[in-house]
Structures are given as structure tokens and as C-alpha cells.
Design a protein around this nucleic acid. Sequence first.
RNA 1: GCUCCCUUCGUCUAGUGGCCCAGGACACUGCCCUCUCAAGGCGGGAACACGAGUUCGAGUCUCGUAGGGAGCACCA
Length: 588
Amino acid sequence: MHVVPWRRAELQFQCVAQPQPQQAVGAVLRTANAALPVLAPAWQALLHGHCAGIEHGGGEAEPGAIVAWVVGAGGRRDRQAAEKQRRPRGRGERTPGRGRVRALVPVSAKIHCFAPSSSEEIMTVRTRFAPSPTGFLHIGGARTALYCWLESRRRGGQFVLRIEDTDRERSTDAAVQAILDAMQWLGLNHDEGPFYQTDRLARYRQVADDLVAAGKAYYAYETKEEIEAMRDAAMARGEKPRYNGHYRDRDEPLRDDPNRVIRFRNPTEGAVVFEDKVKGRVEWSNSELDDLVIFRSDGWPTYNFAVVVDDIDMGITEVIRGDDHVNNTPRQINIYHALGARVPEFAHLPMILDKEGKKLSKRTSAVSVMEYRDDGFLPHALLNYLVRLGWSHGDQEIFSREEMIALFDIADVNKAASRFDTEKLAWLNQHYLKTDDPQALAPEFAWHLARAGIDCSGGPAPADVIVALRDRVHTLKEMAERARIWYAPIAEWDDKAVVKHLKNDTAVAVLDAARGLLLECEWRPEPIHRVIEQTAARLELGMGKIAQPLRVAMTGTQVSPSIEHTIYLAGRGEALKRIADAIAMAQG
RNA sequence: GCUCCCUUCGUCUAGUGGCCCAGGACACUGCCCUCUCAAGGCGGGAACACGAGUUCGAGUCUCGUAGGGAGCACCA
């Protein structure tokens, strides 16, 4: 794609201060800064309005005049791309460095605004997520889906879900369902679909036939062995394995043959150029490309063909997908051209690696989104983590859904691959555990309790448990485990804890005193806290001497949330019973 | 092998030629707080892959080197 300059700012500067070697830099800058307000509108455009480059005025322009090109379409990438384009020029006429612009005083500044010239400016944005159902939704796919979703939401467009199931061997209904479930759990709702490629076979057939009829594709009959031999021969010559175009210009009559495929007649000359929103300008010589198969001998279209037909039919304007597809893009663009269709924008996202910097794999880390649910992560924590992996907005770490939608821009995504860091995810997860409304968290927590085999019907309200534990755990799974003590009797006593905190001189007195006060007090954490303080005051003991025996009595261990919460959550009856048991144990 | 892509603290990142002897966050670590464990508060160590070039000035622009990745299917 090319950059469409639709606004153009013309700034004219008079040269008053040319930086000289050794000259105080400050003096020059001061001159420049004084000039800034004069050209505020144009300067704003330069700074914020996607400046594509700065040029000396043409031949007729006054000496020192500077013209800035401002593009409407994108951000940083467009600028970089535009700079690359203007770069080739003679050494003698170097473009003035931008720093030097500040050393010039403007005599006039005007911006010409043209109405959007191409249809793409007006068209609503449509993105799509197109997984192939050969397994669960993995982390990389989830981020791609998130970015697609975000981009369509921010720009008021539509998000389409498409299932790419033309690989009949590996696609399963279970995988489709797993992906749908994961998308729903993450809350990435789609506006259209899911569309299934297997439902669209007739359409692919028709488009392929049209291409053949138009001479833009042709039948070929090589066997797989012949193709393989071709590839080996090319490799042996040190070349890239490519189809040799044997049937390209044969014009053989159509015949039935188990090896019959349709190949796309790829241009042999020239190059394919596109502006990737993430990677910047990508250029590909057509001589690197061969005539790819678009229809297989089994009667199904290949991926590269089906995506293009689908994306055209579904009106996709932004193709956002994994890095591994960059190499396919030039081929696909050629197909767009052959079909006379408008080429969408492309954005290829860098990979997500594991902690060691290797490809994510089941062996080293959790890869399925639903596995993260099982491990006790919140969907919005995962989303927040994912959105920051390869993208940022200044120093901000925490993003609500609304903020993500408002702030995200696919053009700001980084180019380099990033590593998945479970510890940072855990931190985010705890952040949301601490700040979310416990009531809102309760259903997901109850799901984890049930999953841990805990019957929460007779125990404390899940929301109360969340409040007591959220400062102490990173995941809901961990929280469910720690919550067990309030839903079931103490299963195991920590001997060390018993010896240290129950079998001592003061424990019985403490437990007895606390029991007396607990019998009467109002059953909420705050009054219970006051009971503990009263006990300490009455017995003239430190809080440690009071809280620890009670803690052991309540949990059988020396670790738990604050003592008032620990007691409160047990409920009055159970708390008193456990204290009585502990007194017996201390005396026995 | 060929083509394309990438490179700032251990990790995620800020960075648009002077605001940078590089900022934030996670992790690590010291102190404070404290009924345990945490959480929290205040500190600390820690990076521009390397080499040339352009420039008065380079993390930022150019070229090269090294390292890493992806693709090269009748898989998506």
C-alpha cells in the first residue's frame, strides 16, 4: 500500500540562524522556540498529525521554504515509511535535519486540508480473527484476537470471526467449541460469524474457475513426487524451492486427473510493495514467488486462496495476524490484484515466546487460554497482560477495557518478539483481585471452589473470603485452596505450630478469654478485632501472643489472613468449637 | 541453502537528533509498618548487541558485523 497524503502543510521559513560549529546550542534553540507559536497549527500537525517528512520547497519555492507532508492514514510507521521513500537523494542536497528546522523563523504557515480522497478513509473498519480449529485457543491467538477486536472497537467498526477449517484432516468440532468458549470467557465478542470455510466451497470453486477462464490461473498435473524432485533440484542448485511453471503456458486441454490442481499465474516481473502497519514498508520481488496451488487435487482450496476470497467477500479492511504470515502476504496481494479487489491494510504481529525465549510449547508453559482460567487467572487480567505485550501507552500498566479500546492503536505495536512472563501476569491478576468488587469476582471464585472439590453451601460467602485472601494470593486457584479451612474441618495439624503456640504457658488463658468475649460480640471482623485487643489488654500480652494461638486453633497452622477475618469467616459456632478443641489439645 | 524480519535493565517496555551519564513496571534486594503470611510505604542494583559513518551532538539516522526468528507445501 502507498501512503496517501491527504493533508498538506506548507510552512515557509526564513533562515535567521544557521547552527555553526561550536555555537552555543542553547542560543539556536531559543530562537527556534520563540518561533513556535507563530506556526502553531502547522507545528501541531507536524508533531501530532502524522508528519510524513519534511522537504525543501521545490524549485519555485523561496529559499529556505520547507514543506511538510502530512498523511492521514497512520502514525509512526507511515512516517518511517515516508522517510525511507524520500531518503534516496543526492548527497549534495541533503534534507535539512529536523533539528535545524527549529533554527529557522517562519514567515508563514498554512495547512491545506483536502477531503479524504480514497474510499478507504470513509469505509468503516472491519477486522477478523480467523483461527483454524486444530486445537484450543492459545496465547498468541488470543492476543491476535484481542488486537483485532480492539482495533475494530476503537474505530467503530466490526469484528468478524471466521473458522478456517479447510484442513479436513486436522480440524475438529471440539476445537471449534474450545475456541468459541475461550473467546467468550475473554469477552471478545464478534459482530459477525462465525463463518466456516467449509460452508463456502462452492464460492471458492467459482472464483477459481473465473480465474482460470480469465487466464489468471491454470491447471497443472504434476504428481507430488515430481514436485518434490523439483524442490530438491532447486535446493541442490542453492535456490529457493519453487514450481518451475511447467504447465503455465502449455494451454493443455482440461482433463480428469487425480493430480489435477489449479495454480495461480503469479506475475514474473516487478515487485509487491505493502505498508505493514507494524513492520513498515515491505518489498518483495515477484521473481521470488512462484505459481502457488490455489486448489488442491482433493477439491479443496488452499489457505492462501481461501483467505483472500473470504477477506474480499467479508469486506475486511484490516488484516491483523501473526508474523508467520508476512511471507504469504505478497502472494495474496497478487491474488487481490488478479481479482480486481481492493487490497486491505496489513498488520503482522510479532511472536510471543516462552520464558526462555523459545517458541511457546506445551512442554514448557501453559499455552491454552483456558488453562489460564484453570490456573486461577481472571480474563481481564489476561487481557491486560496481553495488551501490554508488544504494545504500550507511555508508562501505563493498568488498562480497563474502555481504556484499551480508547488508547490502542495497531500502528503502535512493537516489531520485536516478546516473552511471556507469568510473574507479571500474576501481579496483574492480584491487582485485579485487590481492586475489583468482590461481589463481581464471586462467581468465578465459586467456580474455582467447586473445581477444588469444595462445597461452599454451608460456609462463608465467597465475597467475604475474597476480601480476606486477596492480599495474600495471586490466583483464584490458590485462593480456593486457602479457603478450604472455612468450608471443611481442619484436616491436618502442623505439629510445630501446636507445640509453639498451643503448648505454652499462656495459650489456654488466651483461648479461654477470647472464647468468652467471642460468645457475645457482634459477628463482624471489626468487633472481633476489638475482642482480640481486649484480650491482649486484659492479659497484658502482646498481639503475637494472642493471635498466634487463635490462628492455630482456627486453622491448624501458623499462617492465615488477619486473625479477625480468620475467626469471622469460620462463623461463630465453628469458631467457638475450634477454640474449645484447641484448649483440649493444649491441656492434653 | 534462499528470501524476509528482529535486537534498550533478567523480563515487558518509554524513547520521533540536545529534555537521556536513559524513564516506568514485573522480578530481585535493603529499610519501615506488622498478630503470621501477605499487602503497603520509602530506597537500591540492573540495559541502548558490536563496529564504523553522518552530525557541533546518535539509544534515535546510514552502512557493516554478530546473534535471534519466520517463511520457502496440494498445513493453516
